[in-house]
Design a protein around this nucleic acid. Sequence first.
DNA 1: TAAAACATACCAACCAGTCGGTACTTATTT
DNA 2: AAATAAGTACCGACTGGTTGGTATGTTTTA
Lengths: 209, 209
Amino acid sequence: MKLKEKGAASKNKLLKSAAICFSKNGFDAASVDEICRHAGLSKGGFYHHFASKQDLIIELLNQWLERVDDYIKSTQDSSKNMQELFTNIAGKARPVFVEAGEQLPIFLELWIKSSRDPELKEKTITFYKRYLDFFKKVINEGIDSGVVREVNPVAASRIIMAVAVGLMMQGLLDPDGADWDKVARESSAILIGGLAADRVSGRKSKIRN
Amino acid sequence: MKLKEKGAASKNKLLKSAAICFSKNGFDAASVDEICRHAGLSKGGFYHHFASKQDLIIELLNQWLERVDDYIKSTQDSSKNMQELFTNIAGKARPVFVEAGEQLPIFLELWIKSSRDPELKEKTITFYKRYLDFFKKVINEGIDSGVVREVNPVAASRIIMAVAVGLMMQGLLDPDGADWDKVARESSAILIGGLAADRVSGRKSKIRN
DNA sequence: TAAAACATACCAACCAGTCGGTACTTATTT
DNA sequence: AAATAAGTACCGACTGGTTGGTATGTTTTA
């Protein structure tokens, strides 16, 4: 194997190990030593590849950001209308809750950390806005095609985001308290179908202010 | 002042200082020394009142739990039907986002911490279920009175919780990105009114599985 | 032989928690 | 009421352990 490749492999190993160690007990609890041990490298190796622990975190975030892009693209391609899209997203609840279930606490911890760290915040907001724009676009299409009533697209996007994030948090706190897969599907159904027994207003939504 | 009262005052001062220090940089970052300094007490004083740092956190949580009960009661009393309740809750978005805005990161951090710490988890779940039951009750009343269509009450409660928590998290990440007060009101409107332009199904909701 | 990819040893800082001791208050006894 | 005993509130130096980061040396590859 070439030197460069070996170096890149080690760096990747460190990133993977870091993600695992972080998910176990959080960012701060996972020490650099522990990550190194898990990756089978020494501290010198770590600081050869990363300037600091924070630097590693940033790089991890970048990797996730790329995945977000991929996910958005794949979901966008395979969904024709809003209902279908929501069904697709809700259908992916299980992999999100199970496979990535261990990465979830880190993801949330990162979110909170971002609220205090400008460097992280910038990255996280990028991630956040990307999803927001995606939903906004979907809703606008829905409105144009008459499937969605005339709500504020940005506000609606925020609710969708809120439901997604909020359900994740509940799943995190009470994993066995519900069949989250099912809850996700029901949630999207309620979000789509609406809560009220009868339409409160006419075609136009009744948002004041 | 009597001795006991003085002690209680000091303990309270420590709790308040802790809440402030925690909100600045998180649980782990705030050292016991820092809390003591802020409270104008020594370390010995701290460990006279609390068995450990964790012990303090638990007591803080208990205080918050009591406030939750008060809040639920006050909201319950001042709302006759579901729309009114939601309007009330959404109307309180500003105080939640502004006044308690600094305590929010801690609250969320606590949530995550709970997912790993059984002792904390038990407390947090109590808090969580209390809100869940509250919403469930409201929705059941709504269904009985015909205002709400026949959704799964538990699932609906989880969505409401999700929206609340999810919006808080977005507000945390991007405080100036939106008028969160307005977003909260619009959200409750959408939640109540529903997203779809036309009722997808008939009276019965179309939840499968 | 130069640089990349590590390893080893080490440090200064920090942190939760301990412990012996002090100042002051309350309860009990004389 | 005075003396004594017991308890509460608090101080601050100290400890054992951990952590992020560094300085320097060694091996491997181009």
